[in-house]
Structure formats: structure tokens, C-alpha cells
Amino acid sequence: MNTRTILAPATTAMDSVRHEIDHVFDRLTTSSLASVLPTTRFLDAIRPHPAVNMIEDDNNLFFEAELPGVTATDLDVTIADNMLTISGTRTLEAPEDSTSLRRERSTNTFERLVRIPSSVDADHIDATLADGILTVTIPKFEGTRTRRVAVQEN
């Protein structure tokens, strides 16, 4: 049985380097020159990154992340230059006057960047948070939707 690492902390220096490289490469592929300039993220990159699953149906792309204990007010979903950013904070509420006996759940700010394909319509993005699961729905452009072709039998 695996322990689900819900917000895996980036604790090593290599993780922050990787994060920065990801970011620069993602920016390099965009057309705007200004966005290629180094960002200030390197210094504050010690953040957990929520895992993201990507699901596709005929008309939409869905990005899903498990964020238990996060409320909609503490969550930010933004989209810019074909980068989807999921960020926020979660606070763990301990009972009053309590002693902690075991601590496996992580708390902190978190941030995750995901590149989205150009085949989707970022203007009609929709995000829902239910039972600790964030689902970001992005419709595909008309031309990139899957169309079924009826095969005629001769």
C-alpha cells in the first residue's frame, strides 16, 4: 500500500533548480521575449507541488489535483501564455490546547505550473473544487474536437 503524497515538498536544492529550468523552458516556447527573462522564482521555489492528472474527452481537457482541506478562497487558478498555474495555501486546524502526536499531513503554500496545449480555448476555463479535488475544465477549440465519422459499408 502506498502512502499518498498529497503535497510533495520540494526539499532539495535540485528540486528548485528543476522547477526553475521547467519554468524557463516553458517560457522559451512562448513568443513574448520579455517572458524569457529570468524570474524571481528561484529563491522562493521551496514549495510543494501538487500532482496533476490530465484527462481528455471528445470536447474538453480536464486537469485534476487533489487538494484536501483547501477552500476556494485560499486557491488561485490562473492561466497565462498557455501555462495553467494552481497555487494557494492550506491551513491545518488543530484542536485548541492540543498536543500533536503524529504529523503526516503537510501544510504550506503550494504552486504547480502545467503547460496546456494550444488546442484548447483558455477563454472558457472553468474550475470546480469538490471534496478536496480541484477539476479545471478547458474546452477544446471547435476544430480540434474529436468527431466521429460514420463508416459506410459497401
Binding site: M1, N2, T3, R4, T5, I6, L92, A94, P95, E96, D97, S98, T99, S100, L101, R102, R103, E104, R105, S106
Partner: peptide, 16 residues
């Protein structure tokens, strides 16, 4: 099956 991460707290009257 996944092993969910837990926090355990103790107060004078209960465990959480």
C-alpha cells in the same frame, strides 16, 4: 488502496 496521511492530536478530553 492508499494509506491516507493523518495528523493525530490529543487534548485533555479527546483524541482527534
Amino acid at each position: 488502496n492508499y494509506r491516507a496521511p493523518v495528523d493525530v492530536y490529543e487534548t485533555d478530553t479527546e483524541f482527534r
